[in-house]
Design a protein around this nucleic acid. Structure first.
Lengths: 346, 346
DNA sequence: CTGAAAGCGCTAACAA
DNA sequence: TTGTTAGCGCTTTCAG
């Protein structure tokens, strides 16, 4: 109780050996006798020794800490990615520092500064909505710290990236809605400066064309995809003289906002207007009507991001290079777009 | 590009001064000339100098890192607490390391080990559901590291605690349900080994007594309060020969599960059975019917936890001592318990 | 106002 | 198999 910090020096003194021998024993160095290893561990336990990570990290030039930057933590997608990153990295002796940008560019910059300052061995990140400049990310790269981007992170930085095929996701959604006899499909989109949202818009447009449906500018609305923004954009769509009969929303929270507005206007979903979201947040299956959406394989993304980091850090002469891992999206059909009532018939 | 790490030594060499002068200049030491301060900052910028946190932390014996342990991150309550902790601490130059226990006792132990190993200056935590033994928390205390508990953390450790008045919360709920003419009120509760849930159960029982309603064992069901558990317990309640006319659930996710079951059984909420949850998760206001619940003031809790930590760390001869900050709960009445239709009349 | 020197706790050469 | 020595990068007395 209350004794000062116990160091390897203290253990060494007790046993009459040197600190370096103790260090080796604790690190299970091969060229140290089994006898002293046992003895050292015994004393360490007795003295309630706790290694000082700071000192060893400083000495080794390696902190065994990995920084994770997410725009938000209270979304199931990001929380699940983080959980899977942690699981993989913990097994390899790494710990993670989670930071959130709150979708703010400024916060993202300061997060990166903090992480570099803390000497993390790598950074796994998904970009804030606000982010358009990439100088702060280039800083990571120029320091030789491995950078792995996921989901909102596809760009020309020339680093590892893991995400799903957003273009194809949109194709799946539109094909599905067309099969449900929808003719006028609106898109509440993310900001097109973010690559993934641009891809979703491209996929949406191309799929419309392929199905001989017209592309109308008034039906494509870019937003930050919050619940509130979903509400606003849906209100706008309802004010159109020629209303859409389906809305594809590039995020589940915004889709929820849109659904609320539809309900308030007593518009039947999916009969009058069908709705599809994006991300497969748990609530999409819990509300009435349940919302059709795209499953982004968050577990996979988390695991792959962590594994990619491990590959990079374990390769002594690794250099950053563009490397995309693109996963297949999965359309989850629920009530909000089941115009033909196929679900009920099952 | 590609140059090795820049240290204060490099800056010193450029300017022909010593590292110690550079260190002082960078730390805005009073006894250093304005001229050299400016010069040092200039060179530091030119060389793209990044201080090494590990080294300074090791030297100062202070990491300026605070560990945060939460059971889960994908709940709005915890995510909001964390966000507010971060906001307050960032302003004072601290950064936080978030870890999640996933409600697991084992994970919580390893989280604590990691944080102590990382030499955090303090730990702010809410306990896992599984946790009954407290030896791992005592370890923190015995190391002299400030420990601040919140929400699920009330106990006899003799440290700081911040939470709401759970006993009173239950009283508010029961008084409200009684006012709605409910006569048989069930309680889907948390495990009573956790103090906050025990308090909610006590409040529930006492309020029933006060209103001359019988306390029936078959109406009190302890669970882990997940959505799935909420479903199961609601099914059990519905199988009773004498069904309750109201259910008070000690967590919003479990309340949502209960609501789903009620809907599936075509039971009208609140007419046949009224429902009240706990935590004011955002989805409670988004679904139909919206769920009445208790607001726990997550922002306040986060801020107070951070501020308490700061007080402790800034006091050189502080010793851990029991100190509870208890906030007033707030009942949020929504459709799920508005039997008398008072909301609509407004 | 600045320099010299020691050391935070640990590890990794190299010696022995 | 163990000890010696030096040093990771920074801060902090104490001298000058």
């Amino acid at each position: 109780m209350g004794n000062k910090k116990v160091t390897i020096k203290d253990i060494a003194n007790v046993l009459g050996i040197t600190p370096s021998a103790v260090s080796k024993a604790l690190n299970n160095h091969p060229r140290i006798s089994e006898k002293t290893k046992v003895a050292v561990e015994q004393i360490a336990k007795n003295l309630n020794y706790q290694p000082n990570h700071l000192a060893s990290a400083l000495r080794k030039g390696k902190s065994n800490l990995v920084g994770v930057i997410v725009p938000l933590t209270n979304s199931n997608f990001f929380s699940s990615v983080v959980q899977n990153i942690e699981e993989v990295l913990n097994k390899k002796g790494y710990n993670i520092i989670i930071t959130q940008s709150n979708e703010s560019y400024k916060k993202e910059c300061s997060n990166i500064d903090t992480l570099l300052y803390t000497q993390v061995d790598g950074i796994i990140a998904s970009m804030a909505n606000e982010t358009t400049k990439l100088t702060h990310y280039k800083k990571i790269k120029s320091k030789g710290v491995p950078l792995i981007l996921f989901d909102r992170g596809e760009n020309d930085l020339g680093v590892d990236y893991i995400g799903i095929d957003d273009y194809k996701s949109s194709q799946l959604v539109i094909e599905h809605l067309v099969a449900q006899k929808c003719k006028r499909i609106a898109h509440i989109a993310g900001y097109s400066h973010t690559r993934i949202y641009k891809n979703r818009i491209r996929g949406y447009k191309d799929a419309l064309e392929k199905n001989a449906l017209p592309i109308e500018k008034e039906l494509i609305l870019e937003t930050s995809l919050t619940l509130e923004e979903g509400r606003k954009k849906m209100e706008l769509l309802l004010q159109l003289p020629n209303r859409p009969d389906a809305v594809y929303v590039a995020g589940d929270y915004a889709a929820l906002g849109a659904l609320q507005v539809l309900k308030e206007h007593n518009i039947k979903v999916p009969e009058e207007i069908a709705l599809v979201g994006f991300s497969d947040e748990p609530f999409t299956s819990l509300i009435t009507p349940s919302i059709s959406t795209i499953n982004q394989h968050s577990e996979q993304i988390g695991k792959l991001a962590a594994e990619t980091f491990l590959e990079r850090i374990e390769d002594p002469n690794w250099k950053p290079v563009l490397n995309k891992i693109i996963l297949e999206p999965e359309l989850v059909v629920r009530e909000s777009s089941d115009k033909l009532g196929l679900l009920k018939k099952q």
